[in-house]
Design a protein around this nucleic acid. Structure first.
Lengths: 197, 197
DNA sequence: CCTAACTGATACACACCTGTCGCACTTACC
DNA sequence: GGTAAGTGCGACAGGTGTGTATCAGTTAGG
């Protein structure tokens, strides 16, 4: 419903909707309470045009979350090409999603922030993540069983690594990328080498 | 500066400031954009009175963060009585802070949400946490070295456990409290039994 | 090239929040 | 019990964001 698509938009109009979404992501990441005026300005458009593409502020936000869910799905698909071992797939996914975190910070916060015990994460994405963690568990990488717990820990640590200051002493220690740091932390948090006898 | 204290308030007035703070926590936790009117209403007071106690909305928010920082300090002190081993102190701290998370959810989000790479967490609290993690590292419980990383991972996982749905399958598995779950996850994430050779 | 689609500009109505008064009334506290 | 402090009520001014509408000008696309 976010994209009525009753009739196809003209090419430039469709291009502008993309610019609005990009501008919204950029502006709202800096200030979640930014007005539609500032978003339009950042997109090089007028507030009126923003309203023409998105009936309300909420509609714009919904479009942002939908866009992010699409990229999530794409990331999940990409991580599974070639049927790699679970840990490799997980690492691939983390690298892609980490880039998403950089370019879609606000949308990710929006999706994670549930209003009433309800996450905006699409069921398909949730299922994809659940599958990843199920495979990690089957191959003995983790021991945690609750899909919700695995998912939340993953997204939370991803978030923290992204907001980590630039004195990356821990990264130097590990000598790897930030994605690798996330993978290790998540695996550790979810019971890597099971420690309770 | 949050509490001018030029002259002591009358007893009932001071009592009302506490009610305002409590109401603010409750209302803002449900809706971070709630108006001062609704906060006053929840406190059984008028908006005018809220303005009398707190010059501006920002002043009220500052008072909330200051209050939370005080409770943080208290929690840190409580966790260290009797000079327990680091892991025990850490577990105690987690239990207390977990209760804080329940009763001061909005304030904790407020403190964690840095506006410009700047956390509202008081330096004293940050130092206290750093000390805890330093002791955990010295006793071999964790391997991570960056204080910021440890702190962020800790608060993030605490947050996720709190927002965990009620189907606590993982808790049943562990057979322990939620605080115990946090402790294990944090220790695991921060390199419990060091895994890289 | 010509029409339909799209945009910019502007204005309006509406709603909400903030901050500040002033005044009558109630309450705490010496 | 009397005084000063505190509160409720109402009102006002100022600001900001939202959503809608109109109209003239520009651009895409058959």
């Amino acid at each position: 419903m976010t994209t009525p698509a009753a009739r196809r938009l003209r090419a430039d109009a469709e291009h502008n909707t993309a610019r609005i979404l990009a501008a919204a992501e950029e502006v709202l990441a800096a200030d979640p309470a930014a007005s539609l005026e500032r978003i339009g300005e950042a997109a090089g458009l007028t507030r009126a045009t923003v309203h023409r593409r998105f009936a309300s502020r909420q509609a714009l936000l919904d479009a942002l979350t939908e866009q992010l869910n699409q990229r999530y799905l794409s990331a999940l698909a990409q991580s599974k090409v070639g049927n790699p071992p679970p840990l490799v797939a997980f690492r691939r996914l983390t690298e892609i999603v980490f880039d998403l975190k950089v370019s879609h910070r606000y949308a990710m916060d929006l999706v994670s922030a549930q209003d009433n015990c309800r996450s905006a994460l699409s069921p398909e994405v949730a299922a994809g993540l659940e599958e990843i963690f199920a495979q990690l568990r089957e191959s003995g990488e983790i021991t945690a069983t609750s899909p919700a717990w695995c998912r939340q820990v993953y997204l939370a640590l991803l978030n923290e690594v992204h907001e980590l200051p630039d004195d990356t002493t821990d990264l130097v220690e590990a000598g790897r990328s930030r994605a690798e740091l996330v993978v290790r932390a998540v695996v550790g948090a979810l019971g890597g080498p099971r420690r309770h006898p």
